[in-house]
Design a protein around this nucleic acid. Structure first.
Length: 367
DNA sequence: AAGTCGGGGAC
DNA sequence: GTCCCAGACTT
């Protein structure tokens, strides 16, 4: 078809419809006996499929399961999600990461109530127009819940399909993407696309794994180009290695009587919408205690007594490897009025109910 | 096309 | 330790 597709380094045998029919039949047959029982497969309610797809973005199945159960229990319908507060939604998302997903899903629920009468939209363009939903997620939701004939390319199918067609070009470049989406669409049946999409993802997840794929047990091994060429370990090409950056931060638990100073992370900041203890970066080998005291005076106008070490937490946020020094300190004198919006003096009970960053929650548990 | 956004599972 | 995960969105 397109000359761009021709210039990409892959085997064109998949353009033969008999080849694709064979693949389809073997894949579906394998799925019959190998599909996992997952909570979001209990029903085809588009709302529940939607929640599962958002939670599963860049997040493993085992991690999502308990979150999905709690979330759907608390917010059984679009209307109930839309009516909830963002804080309530974030509280259910706490620990899952990529919190923008939760904020956007909440906003999308309100949009569905306003513009679609509370019914999850049926048109691809309308679904794609919801915040937090891109081409993959829109295709997944509509194919699974409404049996629309829409392809999906995500981590599992990208790997599976790249190997099947022997795609040696980097999968990230535009021409590779075009071939992958075209292939994904070409193997869909007239009916049951959602089933086939899930089967492909399941095979990619359980058999066609990133390292040491178990080709011996793969129903598609016979027609797999990568397998034929012995390239199953090197296709798809490696993603660019992340350059981690070491970083020191300090957090302070400031106590005044029975209350603690906490702050809601603002839009544009890391963990926007979540609450955390006052925290800042510690440059170079500076003294964390001095940095902490300065930060509290400059940012919040509070004077503290000499801080004591409480705990150390090592954690990562995207490219940063953070060594967090957690200190505790009593207030020196009276609590001062706080100009910084989003910062409050709250009791232990009040803090416990807030959506906290994961490190914030770990600190809270030590109080 | 590259950077940002989290946290944990698996090896 | 490293790699990876049912991506979307911004720059």
């Amino acid at each position: 078809m397109s000359s761009a597709a021709e210039s990409i380094d892959h085997d064109p045998r998949w353009r033969d419809s008999a080849w694709r029919s064979r693949l389809r039949r073997r894949l579906l047959q394998w799925f019959e006996t190998n599909s996992r029982t997952l909570p979001w497969r209990q029903s085809r309610d588009p709302y529940r499929v939607w929640i599962s797809e958002i939670m599963l973005q860049q997040t493993q199945v085992a991690t999502v399961i308990p979150y999905f159960e709690r979330f759907t229990e608390s917010f059984p319908t679009v209307a109930e999600l839309a009516a909830a507060s963002e804080q309530e939604v974030l509280r259910h998302w706490e620990g899952l990461g990529y919190y923008r997903r939760a904020r956007q899903m909440h906003a999308a629920a309100q949009k569905i109530v306003e513009e679609h009468d509370g019914e999850f939209p049926e048109q691809f363009a309308d679904v794609l127009a919801l915040p937090g939903i891109g081409r993959y997620t829109a295709g997944a939701i509509l194919s699974i819940s409404r049996d629309h004939r829409l392809p999906v390319v995500e981590a599992n199918t990208l790997r599976l399909y790249s190997r099947l067609i022997g795609l040696r070009s980097p999968p990230t470049i535009a021409a590779s993407q075009r071939v992958l989406w075209e292939f994904a669409e070409s193997i869909l049946p007239q009916r049951g696309s959602g089933h086939l999409n899930q089967a492909a993802m399941e095979l990619g997840s359980l058999v066609c794994t990133p390292r040491s794929p178990t080709c011996d047990t793969c129903p598609l091994a016979a027609g797999c180009v990568a397998r034929e060429m012995g390239l199953q370990e090197s296709i798809p090409g490696k993603v660019k290695k992340i350059q981690y950056e070491d970083r020191r931060e300090v957090a302070v638990v400031v106590c005044d009587q029975q209350r603690f100073l906490v702050r809601q992370c603002q839009p544009g900041e890391r963990w926007a919408g979540l609450w955390d203890f006052p925290r800042c970066e510690v440059a170079g080998d500076a003294d964390a205690m001095l940095v902490a005291a300065d930060h509290l005076r400059d940012a919040f106008g509070q004077s503290i007594q000499p801080p004591q070490p409480l705990m150390r937490i090592k954690h990562g946020v995207t490219k940063y490897r953070i060594m967090l020094e957690v200190l505790s300190a009593k207030l020196a004198g009276e609590a001062q009025p706080i100009s910084d919006p989003g910062t409050r003096w709250l009791t232990r009970t009040q803090i416990g109910k807030l959506p906290l960053s994961t490190t914030g929650r770990k600190i809270f548990k030590k109080l």
